[in-house]
């Protein structure tokens, strides 16, 4: 092994390239069966997440009290709310779609696992968002939710009555974890590819068309 090959940067690059060649990481074609409408919801979930991050970023830029007193702030808060609603709506359809496709087949179990954890993490992240609105909803939700967390002994660490802690959970801690999970999930999708149809009585007779023969469709 040469000195260059022993360097960690070279080893990491080689390993990454082997695991995810550029045409697999950023494909421009997908198998023909990806033409199904259900595949749109994975991309739609990511698109909604992007809108969530941008609108949340603007709210963070102006500070947590901005949207109570300014029409502009209230509008950005509304964008943040509705993008979250769309994020969950598209993600739940994506999840059900992947369930009925048994998308964990063909060494794709980890893709399912990371996606499911990201779904649960999204629920926690959105929940902390409701706690840091600093309005009546925050008061009511936090005083109700404390009982659930306290009942299993974690309420002092995940203290929903502590506005400062919840704000940091919402804008730093949870998005970091969620971002890591989402990137991991997407890279696994790229590495393993989308799950092919069940090879049942119809498909068994004909091999599933694979890239690059398939038509160009969204993934």
């Amino acid at each position: 092994m040469t000195t260059e090959e022993r360097m960690w940067t070279a080893r990491l690059r080689n390993r990454a390239t082997r695991a995810l060649p550029p045409d697999q990481l950023l494909p421009d074609r997908q198998p023909a069966y990806v033409a199904s409408w259900i595949y749109v919801f994975g991309v739609a979930t990511l698109a909604a997440l992007l809108v969530v991050l941008v609108s949340g970023g603007i709210l963070a830029l102006e500070g947590p009290q901005w949207y109570h007193g300014s029409p502009q702030g209230h509008f950005v808060n509304s964008l943040h709310l509705w993008s979250v609603e769309l994020f969950f709506f598209t993600m739940v359809i994506h999840l059900w779609g992947k369930f009925f496709m048994a998308a964990w087949r063909g060494h794709r179990a980890m893709t399912w696992v990371t996606g499911a954890i990201a779904f649960l993490g999204s629920i926690g992240t959105a929940f902390t968002g409701y706690l840091v609105q600093s309005n009546f909803d925050s008061q009511w939700i936090s005083t109700q939710a404390k009982d659930g967390l306290n009942s299993v002994g974690v309420g002092a660490w995940f203290n929903v009555l502590n506005y400062g802690q919840m704000l940091l959970f919402h804008v730093v801690l949870f998005p970091l974890v969620l971002g890591f999970l989402v990137i991991w999930h997407v890279l696994l999708v790229r590495r393993r590819g989308v799950v092919p149809p069940f090879a049942d009585e119809a498909a068994a007779a004909t091999p599933v068309p694979q890239a690059p023969q398939g038509e160009e469709v969204a993934s």
């Binding site: 109570h68 209230h74 509304s78 964008l79 769309l86 609105q133 600093s134 309005n135 909803d137």
Partner: peptide, 17 residues
């Protein structure tokens, strides 16, 4: 869709007690 929903429905903000 986000913009349309935000414009049409806005978001709740009942003041804290």
């Amino acid at each position: 869709l986000t913009v349309v929903l935000a414009v049409v429905f806005g978001s709740p903000d009942k003041h804290a007690i």
